[in-house]
Design a protein around this nucleic acid. Sequence first.
DNA 1: CGAACTTTTGATATCACTCAAGGGACGTGG
DNA 2: CCACGTCCCTTGAGTGATATCAAAAGTTCG
Lengths: 250, 250
Amino acid sequence: MTRINPSVTGAASPFIRKLEAFNALSDEDRQMLARISAEPEAVAPHTDLACEGERPRGVYLIMEGMACRHKRLHDGARQIMAYLLPGDLCDLDVALLTRMDHNITTLSACKVVRLPPETVTDVLERHPAVARGLRMSTLVDEATLREWLLNIGRRTPVQRLSHLFCELFERLTVVACVDQEGFALPLTHAELADTTGLSSVHVTRSLQELRQRGLIDLTDGALRILDAERLRTLAGFDVNYLHLGASAAA
Amino acid sequence: MTRINPSVTGAASPFIRKLEAFNALSDEDRQMLARISAEPEAVAPHTDLACEGERPRGVYLIMEGMACRHKRLHDGARQIMAYLLPGDLCDLDVALLTRMDHNITTLSACKVVRLPPETVTDVLERHPAVARGLRMSTLVDEATLREWLLNIGRRTPVQRLSHLFCELFERLTVVACVDQEGFALPLTHAELADTTGLSSVHVTRSLQELRQRGLIDLTDGALRILDAERLRTLAGFDVNYLHLGASAAA
DNA sequence: CGAACTTTTGATATCACTCAAGGGACGTGG
DNA sequence: CCACGTCCCTTGAGTGATATCAAAAGTTCG
């Protein structure tokens, strides 16, 4: 489940992998990125990294585990609005805002780096290739949010879950967090429900349907996709919105 | 709050008004903005400005009317993912991408400026106050998308419409498109349905309920909010996510 | 071993969709 | 000026999907 990290700066960190999916980096870029993400902090599951109403405390870089953005209604209902996976940087320009408008919370145990705003500014100014990757990454975050809106607004429950799984598979593959066993999915049905706009009971039933159709195997917090092609068709999944390897370099 | 701009260029354009809601601008900034948006092009209703799959053709600035981002499923179902209102700039960094992942289409007759990517780069480099406003504006677009996800995922149909109306009221107020008559809402029930994840029949019924409760008056394409306080309470509307006048200047 | 949490299953209720038909507004062409 | 078509809104009826409620079984952890 938890990936073994073979060497200090040897295997590329998820952050570097992700940026390289968008844009070629120089050795110097990679070294700089390895340096700023060298000492991640361990964070327990279900810990808030940032809370609605607070002033943002910096920019978070997820190195391991899974976190989410979410927001609550007064009656306690919750909506998860993004998953933050290894290699994801949250809120590049967040320092411009005075108060968070949503929460960021770990879902599983995580390793996280908090970058001070000055570091971010510095990277943006001095490392154009990295800056470009970070900007693209932000565009993809927005495209993902739009796809989630389509998912919840116009797809059936089974399709919503299927689509989510297709997306996670693609995103986790980029950062080398998928193997023959599939990938870690440390989420309860209630969390999947808060992601897809369903009730947790209905998530249970929809997952059963996906299992019965032979599309997925979800056991012990690991998801294996058994028939990717059929799952994609069912979900109406088109990978384009993730813009992988789609740098617009002339 | 809204500054009356008596200057030579006449009433401030919505674009300038919007940026000034985030950040003070110099006279020179304003002149530059007035210059680049001086000759908007008239676009008929229901015209595509950009289509999924195409290479982006530049950055659009809405000067008048209403447009939207949307995406379709294979079965024809549609989800509208954002409204573009006067003063809105779409896709600041879009030149980084090779293909659009959604469509941009006018809803009403519009006046639009298409800015070439070079102009945008130039503005970002030479006008820091404007650049800052544009970056904040992008953050707010993302926050709005998150709020829409919460809206569709966890609110009732009546709340979804109420929340949408509260949001439009705030955003249109910033750009001085609201008066005692309320504001123009040139949308069919089908379009409201595609926005809120409902069927058009159910939009009709939900609007009836809002009318019967004395909260809104929607006639002839104009929406007047009759009891803003009760509408906000019903919707669970918290304006914070729009980050108006919330520049983080130290 | 017990407590808390999660998943599963069944039963029921309700909300929102679909289908269908009628009426109004608008525009066009005879 | 009227006839007609089209589009949109409205309303009614019926159905189906998904929520809710409730309880049992499984899991994890101290």
